[in-house]
Each structure stands twice: as structure tokens, then as C-alpha cells.
Design a binder for these strands. Structure first.
Lengths: 215, 215
DNA sequence: CGGGATCCGTTACGATACTG
DNA sequence: CAGTATCGTAACGGATCCCG
């Protein structure tokens, strides 16, 4: 199942592209940076053909970028240690994409897994991080943000650790903050519902502020 | 001549890939980071089909990544300001590629333009840069390295500014140093010929050392 | 119903020959 | 030198089907 026409050039860039340069491959990896995902989650989030997704998952497994898990009887796919090393690459790709004109008419609604990687990188750039576990409810979906001295992790879904702070918002508003179209102050005042742990809201706000300033 | 199947997703990564995600596109940009290039230089360096190169150059021109120049009667292609913004992206791609197994049997000999971008980024990471213009003769080709307080530029070919130091080596040896397979000391002693300006060799050596340490 | 596999029409790519 | 033109092959996209 190897590619018929790899570059096979004496260049690390070409080597990287031989592994992650195929259509859809980097977008699959992007989604997996939000944590393990099932076949259907990936397919629906990306809107790609199922046969292609099957092929890509097999290729990524062969190259050691991902591994297949069994999560309570169901298959799931997760990044390996090698696959996780695509984080800075995807971040720079994202930074370059931000220089381009925004998409006039997208084919699909936004994919929530998209935001995990940039959020994690931005939060990790903060030096004075609080010890805090946040559950973020966006539309019907859940993210867990764990901040500690070791770093920040952002995962799709609930984690076993209890959350200090539970907040709810919508994808549109959260994205507006991430892209700088809405101030954190307005976001906090109008579009953020504190479900639990309001005394930790200040720590969350300063963390977000610092991340925005650092990126 | 637009693509029939762009991603058109609400995600900066997908937007970036809609512009630079096609086969060969990032490798063309990589070569152009070494300075303007003619059609044939690109074709020979990459070993790609001429019709595809024509298509890619047209697409990159349409998206504002490159522009066509007329260099003494001949066409040439150069990065625009937007195109130059792919530098960090290509750097991270290169860093990730360095994590992978080296290519066992490459289809073509190394492309000298390949080294300009990583060399420039590495040299730019040095804080105490000397004011120095270096002409680097590798096999039959020439690079010009201009170091100043503003930064370091690495260009394929000769520049109009006179060189303080002219040195000659081979691609294999230079690559060995870049990949850490040969020490700078051994390189300088055995595989580097000083053509002119030996008194500036010390500044060059300390610049290279600092770059190696920083990357 | 989740997790794919098969089939088929369309598009993109690769190699080479040819032209202004 | 700088591309076009042509053509065979591989990859992609969409739909349908299959299997536990």
C-alpha cells in the first residue's frame, strides 16, 4: 500500500512530505491532536470519503504516526509520540493560513477538534500557569483543559479528573475570541456561562490573556 | 485553472493547505527561498514533469505567492512578501523530516538550493552576528551569505557586494557539517579551502558554531 | 449502527515528445 | 530556454454495499 510516486529526495522537507504530504493527512493529524478519535468522528469532522480515510489511517499507522486503540469495544485512533511531533509544524501551517483571505463560503460547519492544537500551543506559551482543570462546554461538545507546572493539555471530551471550573459558550463566540474579533472582556461578560467554580474564573481569564499576548 | 476540490474548511490549516498543499508546491517554494530561479533550474533540481511545473508556477502566481521576473531577457520566478512567510513553516517541516529515517536510495543527487533556507534560519538565530559577506563555492555553484546587524541572508548565486571571505568546499562535506556528522573543526581543517580573505575565517567559524548550538 | 470495503466516473500526476 | 501537447497511470470523490 506504499505510494507509487514518493519524492525520495535528499532533503528533510521532502522526507516529511513523503509521510504527511498527501491530501487530508495533515488535517487528520490536526484533529488527532485534540485526543483519540473514532473513524466516524474524523469522517464527519473532515467530510472526506470513507475509503480515503481508511487508506490514510492505514498509511499513518504504517509510518508510525498513529496507532489504533480499542476504547470500550470500539476502534479509535491516537497519535504516537512521533505523530505528536507534528504540533509545531501544524502550528506554523496555521499561522501561515491566518495570513490568507478567510474562506468566503465553506463547505462544512466548523470542526471543534480544530481548536485544540492552537489553544494548547497558545496556553503553553504562558510562563506563569495556574494549577487548574477546566471543563469547556462548547455547543454540545466538551473539552478538558488541564493546566499545570508541566504544561497545558487540551483534550476533546471529558477527563476523569474533576474540573475546578466548568464554563459554557458557543463555537462562534469562542472562535471570535481566538481570532481576536472579540475582546476577552466582552466574551467573559456576555457569552460565557459559568456552570461551576466561579472563584477560578479569574485564573482562567489571566491565563487566556497571557496566551493572547504571547501568540 | 482553480482546483476542483479545495478543502474550503473553516480552519487556517486547511486554508494554508488549499494554497500550498498540492504536490511539489512546498518544494518549489523551498527552492525559491534561495533566491530567484529560472524554470529549468527548478525543473532540474526537483526532477518534476515540465507540464506540472508550469501549472504550479501559474497557481502560485495566482495566489500571490510568487511573481515572474525578467532577468536579462530570461524569465525567472521569485517569492513575493507573502511567499517569504512560508519560511517558518518550511523550517518546521524540515525539523520534522529530520525525525524520520533518512532516505535509503534517493532518486536524484542533492539539490543545492535546499540548504539555503535552513542555513539562513540557523544563522539568524545567532544574536551576536559579525558584519560579513561570504562567498561560498560548493562544487560548481555559488552561494552568497550576507551577515549584518539586521539579519542574515543566504542567496543562490553571486551578489554585487564584494565578499570579505571566499571559501570553497563540496556539497557532501557541507551537508555532513549541517547534519552534525562532521565537526566544524574537521570541516575547517580538511574540507574547506580559503580562496580569499583568510583573516575573516575566525568570524565565520564562530558564526557557524553559534548557529549549530542554537538550532 | 459503527466501521469500514467495493465500485466507478472524474481529476490529477508522470513521462516523453514536440514547438515557438 | 521555456514551456505545450499528448497519453497512459494513479489518486481522488461520491455512492453503495457489506459485515459483525
Amino acid at each position: 500500500m506504499a505510494r507509487k510516486h514518493p519524492y525520495q529526495l535528499l532533503c528533510p522537507i521532502a522526507r516529511a512530505l513523503d509521510v504527511v504530504g498527501d491530501r487530508w493527512t495533515l488535517l487528520i493529524l490536526r484533529d488527532l491532536h485534540a485526543g483519540p478519535a473514532r473513524f466516524q468522528q474524523l469522517q464527519e469532522g473532515l467530510g472526506m470519503a470513507t475509503n480515503l480515510l481508511t487508506t490514510r489511517l492505514a498509511e499513518l499507522t504504517d509510518t508510525g504516526m498513529i496507532q489504533k486503540l480499542d476504547v470500550d469495544g470500539h476502534n479509535a485512533y491516537a497519535l504516537t509520540e512521533l505523530g505528536r511531533k507534528t504540533d509545531l509544524l501544524l502550528w506554523e501551517l496555521s499561522q501561515f493560513g491566518a495570513e490568507l483571505e478567510p474562506e468566503p463560503d465553506p463547505r462544512r460547519p466548523g470542526n471543534l477538534r480544530t481548536i485544540a492544537l492552537p489553544l494548547r500551543i497558545a496556553l503553553n506559551s504562558v510562563t506563569d500557569r495556574p494549577e487548574l482543570t477546566i471543563r469547556l462546554l462548547i455547543d454540545d461538545e466538551t473539552f478538558t483543559i488541564v493546566s499545570s507546572v508541566d504544561g497545558v493539555d487540551v483534550q476533546y471530551g471529558e477527563s476523569s479528573t474533576p474540573a475546578d471550573l466548568i464554563i459554557r459558550t458557543t463555537y462562534a463566540h469562542f472562535l471570535a475570541v481566538g481570532e481576536g474579533r472579540m475582546s476577552l472582556k466582552e466574551f467573559g461578560a456576555k457569552h460565557l456561562e459559568v456552570v461551576e467554580g466561579p472563584k477560578h474564573l479569574g485564573a482562567f481569564a489571566s491565563l487566556m490573556n497571557a496566551a493572547r499576548a504571547a501568540v
